[in-house]
Nucleic acid binder design. Structure first.
Length: 644
DNA sequence: CTTACCTTC
DNA sequence: TCTAGAAGGTAAG
């Protein structure tokens, strides 16, 4: 591309209607045409590899003029090498294209944006791209969130009833084929747009999902810094505790065995020690499929009074989990530069929630994991400052020098949303009068009769789980199990809880009735989900469907607001160009930012106020009946955040 | 109760 | 040896 060509193409953008875009890989595949054997590979290998494979971006600009519609194909290399000046011009054009207001269409736009941000090293110290690209993948996921398409051809089959098909190509895929694939994007997106409008999903698509895509790409490219040293130290500590726990298990069993093997554990517990015969009071759970004696946590819990082994197995399991998933599993993803670049999946969860993968960073334990204390003195004397009796699995995630983490979380969001959606007067009153204090802490106080400051984080978490269990319709036996009380007590608890909050009951029944009538339910942002078995004859299937329906409305609505909060905060940070802050992680109702120390207090204020106003930006018709307060905490490590 | 991901067997 | 699915753990509500 010469500079005069660049100028003429820039000019074209002013008269163009649309731009169709796709990424071509070095192996000849594209975002629209993935060789079958490479699909899983690219997905598993994650982001690092897909840029390595990215070869060039193919753009087709559509211009409608009196003589009809013309398309102008352009290619932009994404490989290193070649003339610097050409590369600069390609960059200029691509960024202009993405920034300009014409309609842009790309299947899996997030991947394309990721490649561009990565290739041109557009890491946002400040300023996030506000590129808006219509993505058929996102569109079709909104239309049917339970069954999202993975490939473009799947999408063609699924939504477009075979009206469009890709040209067959054997062996090497020519550029001509790529162009004909690309040409399909226009009618396909037009079709999907019509459907989105028809199903009242258009606003959700354009106001939330389309705007979220570049934010997710930027988060992926940005990554989060990880201390490999801390992680390795944790690995060593866990390794030593595992070895001890293993020996204790062998001693209790009388001989060595594979503790993590269900089969061998079943043999030891039930055939050698015959523990199931010693607790004749309660019948023990069976596995679902093969109907064998279960070795699940609940069973081991019941058995722990009669023999030391079950308890020892439980703690061994926990240590193994921590080591394999949260140490070894994370270490594998650390780049040479010391970062984790997780994938943020926009279109995989049917609830509308975001999903982090490779690695999943949303399920790293929040609570410190307790270790046996016997060798406390030894380890504490050689300690590097951490408490040897507990491991904070989020500790290895650290901010840069001169920067601080700011975590902003919506307080008891789903419960507040439930208050809003159900209009339950008692719940509404609680949230409207009492903005200070944590609702679950308060409930725990009432439940256990202790003072507010005496409630531990673990107790609070337990209360939270119980409350949600009851709301979403847990059975009495299951609740009794988690509460550790009798079935009758559990029943009484459920009854008194739902009796206190009458609106909840009418809300759930309303949800179910709606779903039975329409076959689907919607969130506040009109996101929908079809529930197959809502009118099923099968009692079990129907009960499951009913819980799904209620759960979706609440969880999906929370997801809508959290996404909006991401968009709004990033947008506001963009407007204040002097502020240095970047969004790193979303854990459903919590956003983790990294903020330059000098901008800390200003950013904190901004985040709190923007997030607390999120509900107002849901749409003109929605008036929120409860406030959505945000609490902030800060720190240099994710594992040690202090309320702020 | 729901929604997820990941590891082990 | 490989893979699919079951089971079990974690997170978030």
């Amino acid at each position: 591309m010469t500079s005069s060509e660049l100028a003429s193409w820039q000019q074209q953008l002013y008269t163009a209607d649309k731009a169709l875009m796709t990424m071509i890989y070095t192996d000849g595949s594209s975002q629209l045409r993935e060789p079958v054997e490479l699909i899983s590979k690219r997905r598993v290998d994650g982001s690092d590899d897909s840029e390595g494979k990215a070869s060039f971006i193919l753009v087709s600009i559509l211009v409608t003029n009196p003589s009809g519609c013309s398309s102008y194909p352009l290619t932009f290399p994404l490989t290193n090498g070649g003339l610097q000046r050409a590369s600069d011009m390609a960059k200029t054009f691509l960024l202009n294209l993405l920034d300009c207001k014409i309609t842009k269409v790309c299947f899996y736009a997030q991947e394309l944006m990721h490649a561009i941000l990565h290739h041109y090293q557009l890491i946002p110290e400040r300023g996030y791209p506000s590129w808006e690209v219509f993505d058929p993948k996102v569109a079709s996921w909104l239309l049917n969130p339970d069954n999202p398409p993975i490939t473009f051809s799947e999408l063609l089959d699924k939504h477009l009833e075979g009206r469009y098909t890709m040209a067959a190509a054997v062996g090497l895929v020519s550029n001509e084929t790529h162009l004909s694939d690309l040409a399909l994007l226009d009618p396909v997106m037009t079709d999907l747009s019509r459907k989105l409008r028809q199903e009242e999903l258009w606003d959700l698509f354009t106001n939330i999902e389309v705007k979220l895509t570049p934010v997710l790409s930027a988060m992926e490219v940005q990554g989060i810094k990880v201390s490999g040293e801390t992680l390795h130290e944790y690995g060593g500590i866990l390794q030593r505790h595992m070895a001890k726990a293993e020996m204790r298990c062998y001693r209790a069993a009388g001989h060595p065995f594979q503790i993590n093997s269900h089969v061998q554990l079943r043999q030891v517990l039930f055939e050698e020690l015959k523990l199931d015969q010693q607790c004749r009071g309660q019948k023990l759970a069976r596995t679902n499929v093969q109907n064998l004696k279960s070795t699940s946590e609940a069973v081991l819990h019941k058995l722990r009074g009669i023999h030391p082994l079950p308890e020892l197995v439980l703690s061994f399991r926990q240590l193994v989990k921590m080591k394999s998933t949260y140490v070894d599993g994370i270490v594998d993803y650390i780049t040479r530069q010391g970062y984790i670049h997780t994938s943020w999946e926009q279109t995989t969860a049917s609830s509308g929630r975001l999903q982090s993968a490779n690695p999943n960073i949303q399920n790293i334990p929040r609570q410190p994991v307790d270790l046996e204390e016997e060798e406390r003195s030894e380890e504490q004397t050689c300690s590097t400052g951490h408490n040897a009796t507990a491991l904070r699995m989020r500790e290895p995630f650290v901010s840069h020098d001169g920067w601080t983490f700011v975590a902003a979380d919506f307080q008891s969001m789903e419960l507040r949303l439930l208050a809003h959606l159900s209009k339950d007067q008692v719940l509404l009153d609680i949230f409207n009068q009492n903005s200070a204090g944590d609702i679950f802490v308060q409930l725990t106080c009432e439940w256990l009769g202790v003072i507010e400051t005496k409630v531990s984080a673990a107790q609070r978490d337990r209360t939270k789980r119980i409350v949600y269990s009851v709301i979403y319709g847990v059975g009495p036996e299951r609740l009794a199990e988690t509460l550790g009380v009798s079935k009758d007590d559990a029943k009484a608890f459920t009854k008194s809880f739902l009796g206190k909050f009458k609106g909840i009951n009418s809300f759930t029944h309303g949800c179910i009735a709606d779903c039975q009538r329409h076959g689907f339910v919607r969130t506040i942002s009109r996101r929908w989900r079809h529930i197959k078995n809502i009118n099923s004859q099968n009692f079990h299937a129907r009960a499951h469907a009913e819980r799904q329906a209620v759960n979706f409305v609440v969880q999906g609505s929370a997801a809508d607001i959290c996404k909006l909060a991401m968009i709004n905060t990033v947008h506001e940070l963009n407007r204040k160009t002097h502020l240095r802050a970047r969004l790193l992680v979303q854990i459903h109702d919590e956003l983790l930012f990294e903020v330059h120390d000098e901008d800390l207090s200003e950013v904190k204020d901004l985040l709190k106020s923007v997030m607390e106003e999120t509900a107002e930006s849901c749409g003109p018709r929605i008036k929120f009946l409860v406030p959505l307060p945000v609490s902030l905490s800060t720190g240099k490590s994710w594992g040690r955040l202090q309320a702020a």
